[in-house]
Nucleic acid binder design. Structure first.
Lengths: 337, 337
DNA sequence: GTTTAAAATGGGAACGGTTGCGGGAATGTT
DNA sequence: AACATTCCCGCAACCGTTCCCATTTTAAAC
């Protein structure tokens, strides 16, 4: 569409000098007479010259673009991460290309392929919930493509990884309920195969253990983050001879459903049953009762991931401590506990 | 970093043919012997050849990248729009580059400049709240750069624009309260200078007028979306000799604050004062009472904007109806009214 | 005024593809 | 067998830069 963009050759012709000289004047490293430089720069501005990054990229074999692959940007958690990455990248004059996998491993693969074709300088990836096959990303790694993994990471690869503190999150909320005097604390957990689920389960177990509370398998229900799962679990727990007096969940969305059910049944929160969440979603402070939850710092996760990528890009290798970085969250106590 | 990527020259050398032949075999338009084509394709696959989009872009003068500039991707409204754009773009094999202006007109300008340098094929822009100066974008337009404006649009430019239905939103919620029998309906409005604010105010006024309710300036308070603004307005309204019996707001966040204040004062919702929002934020259904609100369709807005951009890119001109597209929302009635 | 080194500039290859043009081989026609 | 036609393929230019190397200009030294 755009009418012929001004090139250094146009400038050179206009000034009656060679394009090499123009190039040198515009890049400030080579040796050139100061007056010439100034003259060229003036003409370049007059003609509204804009360097062609494509040509430059072709030579330097870089695009200053980073591929960011996430499951779903409409989830606030991911949106904040993306924001963090973008801010970190912008500071170093990198652009980010967003591709969503929609939680589909196939689309994830296609996205990686497409971004490889676009010759991005590196990838920041958060895998799908169902991604089991890491062959493709391993190939990228063996080709030497800079890679950073976050949130849902690929453990098998020696690349920088940034995750939220799953273990500590559930350890903290569970311990909090124990300190509130709760004895029979249930856990509404995530899918078994997810690393994050296992870590959170461990945090829960460890908290119990440290306070000499025996682990009761009946009080743990795995879920697929579905409303039905919540209902089934509550049905089951409330009909136990000794129902729980506290329920930890691994995501705020689950906690809110539980609170709804408890309110409907007239069970007092937190006196009879206390509830905790995970994530500090935007509405956690708005609902009644306010939800006690573990706040994550997704923006920070994004920033750290971005920082590692830039380290990879400049130094070639990230600092030693970068293999697995755990972003600490913090407990936010509200009326539900 | 990456070891030398395979080029068509490598393939040509290996097969003892010229790079032109390889190129022709790989792009399926030119005339070439079928056997040769197959052989080349086979070798290309064996060698894991990947075309270099930079070189291609240099020739075709296109990058298949779209620049998307938004104020803040952490806002769910914008995140959904971006998602819509991304999905639309992906379908046509375009990538999107995200840049956030953080509501700063200066950063917005810088972003546009940076993306111009990256030679994106087009821009999808949502301006800052404070963007008043559209010179830069007008220049882009006069250069022939494909442009689509959404949500916070530049009215002065003859380009496709996609917006939510501000007028209808407030018209609908106001009318809804009137139908609920409310007589003194207040409006918690946005900043006066914003187009969207004016449209929403008009929707409110028109609804009143159509039902023969006189417009009372005392019942309209402009805000800058700050909590203090809500408190001031409520303080003022509740101390009127005849306080309102219904309050429309122009964003859900304001409605929630109002509900909080009303609950604190023991005022019954909706019997004494009904409340409506705008946006259908994720927590609107969760709070107590559930918030009656006007649901926007940001994902759809993004998709439409993306579609227009692709039309611009392929046909050169978007269809006639594309000048201003208004994405209809719908009223969601809950317990707050 | 010459010589010599240093500084400034120009020429051209290279990056990785596409594409118009021309030529040689294969095929068809008389 | 001679000629026209078609079909493939190679050559070379081009896209907009950078950068090495050669060449010219300038300045300094004798």
């Amino acid at each position: 569409m755009q009418k012929h963009q001004v090139t250094i050759i146009d400038i050179a012709r206009k000034m009656g000098i060679s394009k090499s000289t123009v190039s040198r004047a515009l890049t400030n490293n080579a040796n050139i007479k100061p007056e010439t430089r100034e003259a060229v720069i003036r003409v370049a501005n007059e003609m509204d010259y804009q360097p062609n990054m494509l040509a430059l990229g072709l030579i330097k074999n870089e695009t200053r673009m980073l591929g960011v692959i996430i499951p779903d940007i409409e989830k606030p958690f991911f949106a904040s991460i993306v924001s963090g990455i973008q801010h970190a990248a912008a500071r170093m004059n990198y652009r980010i290309i967003i591709a969503q996998s929609d939680e589909s491993p196939e689309i994830e693969k296609e996205n990686i392929k497409a971004l490889m074709l676009s010759r991005v300088d590196g990838f920041l990836i958060c895998h799908t919930r169902d991604t089991r096959d890491f062959e493709q990303i391993k190939q990228l790694h063996s080709k030497g493509v800079p890679l950073v993994s976050f949130a849902r990471i690929c453990q098998e690869l020696p690349i920088p990884k940034v995750v939220e503190d799953d273990f500590n999150g559930l350890f903290t909320t569970t311990q909090h309920l124990i300190e509130r005097g709760k004895k029979r604390i249930a856990l509404f957990a995530g899918p078994k195969h997810l690393l994050a689920s296992r870590l959170r389960l461990n945090g829960y177990k460890t908290a119990l253990q440290q306070h000499n509370i025996p682990f009761n398998p009946k009080l743990v229900k795995h879920s697929k983050f579905l409303t039905e799962n919540v209902e089934e679990a509550m049905e089951y727990w409330l009909n136990l001879p000794e129902p729980p007096d506290g329920i930890c969940t691994v995501y705020d969305g689950g906690a809110i459903k539980i609170i709804e059910i408890l309110k409907r049944k007239g069970i007092k929160i937190p006196e009879q049953i206390a509830v905790t969440g995970f994530g500090n979603d935007s509405w956690a402070s708005i609902i009644d009762p306010g939800l006690t939850t573990y706040e994550q710092k997704p923006f920070e996760i994004g920033q750290i991931a971005g920082k590692f990528m830039l380290e990879l890009l400049t130094k070639g290798k990230p600092s030693m401590y970068s293999q697995l970085t755990i972003s600490k969250g913090s407990l936010i106590v509200r009326q539900s506990s």
